[in-house]
Design a binder for these strands. Structure first.
Lengths: 356, 356
DNA sequence: TCATTTATCGTGTACGTTAACGAAAAGCAA
DNA sequence: TTGCTTTTCGTTAACGTACACGATAAATGA
């Protein structure tokens, strides 16, 4: 933004316009008090009017304060490698931000362990960061700490899971229901009329799988709203167990129903695909989630037909930058940020991998 | 880079160590001459030893040199509004970069006029920019000017069209052939076996439509490589004419062939969709390119089934930042940057529009 | 009333770099 | 030697912001 002339405006322009010194403008901009309400308002008015944005080069040069941003997300495992992705986004952001006196504290925890989550949050609190990126898997514990964040006025950004009715700076993640809807749309286009469909759910993963339930809701809602008749079977399998879920799947496939399509509303589609491969079933339309390595592998082999991706590395990356923009450059941040629902097939996956 | 202590070293540290003033160090670092050979060597030696890297904040703050970046792309028209998109990316980048002494010269030309292209490039040369973003529609003319750029050591970045075997800093754009391949893949999934397919080409647009030809190549290559039998008709229509291409299309549709799918390998899918709408044909799978407003409109109405997008606003945005990073912050730049091939349907378009 | 506190504001220096300006040193001719 | 030019170098004022410090004015207390 420029004003009428071609010169960028700085605090000294504001000072001149407001008839005060740059010291006063600085106090107003940083809420450091010691300014009369009237002058404060006048300065703020002119800041608005001239659409002032600070020069972060000068700021970074001058300031000796390094802003600390904390990231709290689950660690990745062989059974759920999803969280590897955000880490690469974090690394990229961290690299870009070292220039700007910003330090990133990356903390992770076992996603099935409530205590681990609590401990990590305690640790983060002790480090007193300037901002927090959080994947709030356990709602009750999260809310507890959020109270503390609010008290200390530490901004926090959610990724992947959104909590309503709290004062988070932003949310970066998917619109779960709509992504299920998209999956159904693709399923319909690739299967015959009156198809037999199978939905493979994860059992024992109840606490934080609300967004997975919503994917399934979106999936089934599509067919009912479009008044398309389908035959759906839903099975629950412990996909996080380290042994392969062959027995459970065998039971389903032994019942002499030939499925036209299978929907796996979580990132463990590769487990199903592996089963299909051993069975030699490569003519079933399968839809899974997330570009993790094993999924990509089976997509390229043809045992997964579609993957729906939400660019998790971008989510973490954007979340960090949101905090930075809020804290340093004072840019306004949009609260709800749904990621694009990417449709990945064998033919376009290459480009998604290349764009980091 | 830090030295053994924890403090960043600057030119004043070098000056102290070399027993000279910072002015001298500066002259050495910038090859501004007026320094005795002996002292020059001593300074360079210490620069090496202390592993000095300049503070780009201070540099940018202090320097009164504004880097000029030129953008040369076709102008958009009602018949080809594609190039509106990059402009919004340019505007965003321009806004973000005004902070950093960077000025953006936006030059556009009539994409059907060789002379216009030449004139614009001449103009750009005269302005002697520090970097150039170019859509090299006319290969021969482009190569001519590229020689000049190379001679002047001006870095240039291509968008949307890539030229091989030249020394460009980077390329941001699609892999045209692969995007046609993706289109074919979608077409196959949504149409019956042995489908009747129609390809709607743009006539009289030959010189710079190599990437459109490559889309078609990719499209047809898919079916041959998969050994799928299709029946393809290709028609050429002047989609850039301001009158609607009804006559030509009528001729094709009067021949009593019922088409299952139509592929429009350019951004003018909306013209076809409009025809289908007046004819009341909404059961044909249609695949077009680019998220321009009229295409979005017909996608939502159901007369376009799939759109393939390449996020052109991101291309221009990234191209500009590549130049900035190269020139100012000295970051290494990756040369070839294919954009993701986005598959857009009615159900997920919302999220693409929201992400700028 | 005057002294003292308190609220409010301006000044000055620093951050690391650029570049103009002028000073000192060296070279050169007489 | 003197006077002059040329080479070589140091000093200093910016760039836009942060923040300590000191200054001023207003409010309070006696």
């Amino acid at each position: 933004m420029k004003n009428n002339t071609n010169k960028r405006i700085g605090i000294k322009d504001i000072a001149a316009r407001a008839g005060v010194s740059i010291g006063t403008v600085d106090r107003v901009l940083h809420n450091r008090g010691e300014v009369k309400e009237a002058t404060r308002n006048k300065v703020l008015e002119i800041v608005q009017e001239l659409d002032y944005t600070p020069n972060i080069f000068a700021k970074s040069l001058s300031s000796k304060h390094t802003t600390k941003l904390a990231i709290v997300i689950p660690d990745s495992s062989d059974n759920n490698p999803y969280w590897e992705k955000p880490v690469s986004g974090i690394k990229l952001a961290a690299e870009e931000l070292t220039h700007y006196n910003t330090e990133i504290l990356y903390e992770h925890f076992d996603a099935s362990d409530r205590n681990a989550f609590k401990n990590v949050l305690h640790k983060v609190c002790d480090q007193n960061p300037d901002g927090i990126v959080l994947n709030p898997v356990f709602k009750d514990i999260s809310l507890e700490f959020i109270q503390e964040f609010d008290k200390r006025a530490i901004p926090y950004v959610f990724i992947d899971i959104n909590l309503r009715e709290v004062n988070n700076l932003a949310y970066y993640g998917q619109d779960a229901e709509q992504s299920g809807w998209v999956a159904a749309r693709l399923m319909e286009a690739s299967t015959p009329k009156f198809p037999n469909l199978l939905i493979v759910k994860q059992s024992k993963w109840k606490v934080f799988s609300s967004h997975i339930e919503r994917r399934i809701e979106g999936f089934t809602r599509y067919f009912t709203e479009q008044q398309k008749v389908i035959n759906t079977t839903t099975i629950e399998i412990d996909l996080n167990a380290s042994n392969e879920p062959y027995e459970s799947l065998n039971k389903v496939f032994d019942q002499n129903i030939s499925y036209h399509g299978i929907f796996v509303p979580n990132s463990r589609g590769f487990k199903l695909a592996n089963f299909l491969k051993t069975k030699g079933l490569n003519n079933i339309i399968t839809i899974g989630y997330d570009l993790i390595d094993s999924n990509i592998d089976f997509l390229q082999q043809g045992y997964l037909t579609y993957l729906i991706s939400q660019k998790p590395e971008l989510q973490a990356y954007k979340a960090i930058w949101a905090l930075f923009d809020h804290l340093v450059t004072k840019k306004p941040i949009r609260k709800t940020n749904y990621s694009a629902i990417d449709i990945i097939i064998k033919e376009n996956i290459k480009y998604y991998l290349e764009n980091k």
